[in-house]
Amino acid sequence: MYIAILIASVFLSSFLVWGIARTISVPIQHLCLQIQRINGETDAQIQDSYSLNELESLKRSYNQMEEMIRRSEEEKRQFFQNASHDLKTPLASITGYSQGIVSNVIKDHQKAASIILSESLRMTDLVESILSLSKMDSHTFDLHPTDLEVMEFLDECVDIMSTIRKDCVIHLEAARPLMIHTDPELLKRVIQNILSNCLRYAEHEILIRMSTDGNSLILLIQDDGPGFLEKDLPHIFERFYKGNGGKNGIGLSIVWTGIHYLGGSITAGNRAVPEHGAYYQLLLPLSF
């Protein structure tokens, strides 16, 4: 009797262990198969429900990871598609005008050379922006911080950008001179990209107001244009997002990535009624 009970107990224990093992091993094998299917393009989410809390938690973590990978791959694909399109346009102009000069179809060589130069500079700027974004994303962008007198720095930025539109005035307001410790080249790119966007939409003027809260430099840049469309507001810093007027590019994404790379932050929106136009508020630490 004892031997029979012992054999039955061993058999029952083995069956229970086998059953428990299967409830764990089968979902794990399924998870391994799903991981092998991940390619960032097709949906590889797990839809099954599991009885064990730990396996349910693992499934949720996997699904979140899979969704992030798929979204990242889609963003990368979209980024390269748009970058290729933006590079293709100036290349087509350069090729067309070059062929026109060679075949002597274009008689005004000076005008053609001017367009070729302009499109070459545009393409160079785009390539440099893409490289800068890539380096900042991988945290390999080299910063060279130095002491910077903000008013003098902004004056220089305004002088450069004022040549783009003669009918738009850029006003600069500051309570007092202020020193910060930051990378001047990256900050200049950030400010110029914002001013370039403001100049595109402003009617008559742009205002830059400088202040401090004791720990951070606060820069408010605003224009008197139509402002952002409500549907565009959540996406204005996305790379190659096509917003108001069908414009797309990476200018404002450079602003977002660059200001955060410098340890600061940025917000943007529309000015309060009755005023109209867009605003950008940048916060930068006084010491980098």
Rank of each mutant, 00 (worst) to 15 (best):
M1P: 09
A4W: 10
I5Q: 13
S9D: 07
F11S: 15
S14W: 13
G19E: 12
A21C: 08
A21F: 13
I24R: 08
I28D: 04
Q34P: 00
D43I: 05
D43V: 03
I46L: 05
I46K: 02
L55N: 00
E56K: 06
E56G: 04
L58D: 02
M68E: 08
F80C: 01
N82G: 01
A83R: 03
T89E: 14
T89D: 06
A92H: 09
S93V: 13
S93F: 14
I94Y: 01
G96D: 06
Q99Y: 14
Q99N: 10
S103G: 05
S103F: 12
N104M: 11
I116P: 00
S118R: 13
L133N: 03
K135A: 11
S138K: 12
H139N: 12
F141L: 14
L143Y: 07
P145V: 05
D147S: 06
L148C: 10
M151I: 13
F153E: 03
V158E: 02
I160A: 05
I160T: 07
M161T: 01
K166S: 15
C168E: 02
H171N: 15
E173D: 14
M179A: 04
H181W: 06
T182Y: 06
D183L: 09
L187P: 01
R189M: 03
Q192P: 00
S196M: 11
L199H: 04
S211W: 12
T212N: 06
T212Y: 10
N215L: 12
L220N: 10
L220E: 09
Q222F: 02
D223N: 14
L229T: 11
E230V: 08
H235L: 12
F237R: 10
F237L: 15
N244S: 15
G246A: 03
G249L: 09
G249W: 05
A268C: 13
R271K: 15
A272C: 09
V273P: 08
L284G: 02
P285M: 02
